[in-house]
Structure formats: structure tokens, C-alpha cells
Simulated assay, not measured.
Amino acid sequence: MESVSESADSRAATNALLAGLCADGLAPAAVVRFLGLAAHRSLRQAARRPRALAELTVLHGALFVLASGRRPGRRWVAAGWVLAVLHLGLLEHRTRLATADVLTLMRGNLPALPGGAGRASGVLAVGLDLADGRQARHQGTTSPFGEYADTFADAAYWTWLTLRHEPSRTLRTAAIAAWALPVVTVTGLALRRGTMPERPRPVLLRPAAALQAVVALRHLTRR
């Protein structure tokens, strides 16, 4: 049987680790200890969900093959697999990925895939975003894993697309403000306060739908 600390939800466990790190004043040794403990717990949580771990590995293995010869290609996919595995504890009581989770992870890996920078890639990303949200609501499969994967998929894909392919400096600045800055801010608050902030509402953490549409349509129609 799991111990109390092992069976606690991921948020409570993460808050305990952050509190210890904050109490030590973010000293280098404390940071190393925090990373080690966090990685150890994350791997234990992943091992307790072998089906989800296998599904993640099969999905990213297929994406890894498709990403051959591309940039950022296989490195992007490999990094995505590592991050997803380390956050499997956020599935909480679930032991497998939902359809919505798979769609979200595919969206986050679009930059590594054939056609990921094509004209229709922005429209495809919007479509995948709408589809995973609809699936999660319809199947009742929402979880912290899916919520945070959705947030980081948006941040990764839209920041990459805008900074790499959008000529407008104004839109590139807006992309950083809408996608990258909130993630950095939430991380900074967690480290400073020693506790995870409440997940911001979509309007605070995700880009406005209008900004997604503008970037996607400009990319679609650009010569």
C-alpha cells in the first residue's frame, strides 16, 4: 500500500517540495536536491501508470520517426516525451491517456513534424485545440495533466511559429506576452512563494482566440 506521502495528490506533493526549496533560500544545493526529489517522485508516479507510460512512448516513438531529418525534429519530440513522462502523476486517478491528451500532445509536437511549418499548420493547431477541448468535455476526461499539457502545447507551438515565421515585430512581441511570459511568471511565483499558484484562467495563461486566429490566417495566406 502506498504511504501517505506517495498517495497524496500531485499538487500537495509539489507544494511540499517547493516549500522546502523556498525555506532553503533557493541555494544551489537546495535546487539540486529539489530537482532530484521531484524527478524521483515523478518517475515513481510514471511507473505506477505503466499503460499511460506505454501510450506516451508509442505516440512519441511514432512522432520521432516522422520527425527524422527535420529541425527542431527529433530533439523536440524527445524533450516532449521526457516532460510528459515527468508529469504523469498529474493524471491522478487515471491510468491511461485520454483522446484529448493525445490530441494535445500532437499539437505541441507540430513544429517537429512534416508540414509543421506549412501554411495550414496554424489552422491545424487551432483545430486540434478545439477538438481536444471538446473531447475532454464530452468524455469527462479532464485532469491536471491535460490542463497543463494544453497550456504548454499552446506556449510551445504558437511561440515557435510566431517567432520563426511571423515578420511583424508587433505580433512577435504579442506572442511572447501571450504565451511565454505567463508561463515564466507562474514558475517564478511558485519558486518565490513556495507553493504552486492556482492555475490561471485561460484568458490569463493562453493566448486570446483572436490572436491565434490572426497568426494562423496570416501564416495561411503569406506567400
Results as ranks from 00 to 15, higher is better:
T187A: 14
P167G: 02
A112K: 03
S10Y: 05
L86A: 09
G89H: 02
T170F: 08
G80N: 10
L66P: 02
R70E: 05
A39H: 05
L63K: 09
L53D: 00
T185D: 15
H165M: 11
L128P: 12
A67K: 03
T187E: 09
A100W: 10
W179N: 10
A175E: 13
L189I: 01
A131F: 03
P202C: 14
L26Y: 00
D150W: 12
A209G: 13
R169M: 12
R107T: 08
V123Q: 05
A149V: 07
L181C: 08
V183L: 13
V32R: 11
L204N: 13
L21F: 01
D9C: 12
A30R: 04
S143H: 02
L37S: 13
R218G: 09
A30V: 07
H60W: 11
A112G: 02
M106N: 05
G140L: 01
P114F: 06
L97R: 06
S7L: 01
G89R: 02
L17R: 14
L56P: 04
S143C: 06
L211I: 05
L66A: 15
A30N: 03
G25M: 00
A52L: 01
G122A: 02
P114Q: 07
L217V: 15
V203T: 15
P202L: 14
A23Y: 01
A8G: 02
R119A: 14
G194K: 02
G69F: 01
L97S: 09
P50K: 02
Q135M: 07
A30F: 04
N15Y: 03
T14Q: 14
P167H: 03
L128N: 10
H138F: 06
D150P: 09
S168K: 01
Q212V: 15
V32G: 00
L110C: 05
H60S: 08
V4H: 03
N109G: 05
F152I: 15
R119Y: 06
T159P: 08
T151P: 04
W158A: 12
A156C: 12
A39W: 01
V215R: 07
G36Q: 10
R192C: 04
R48K: 06
A100H: 11
A149S: 14
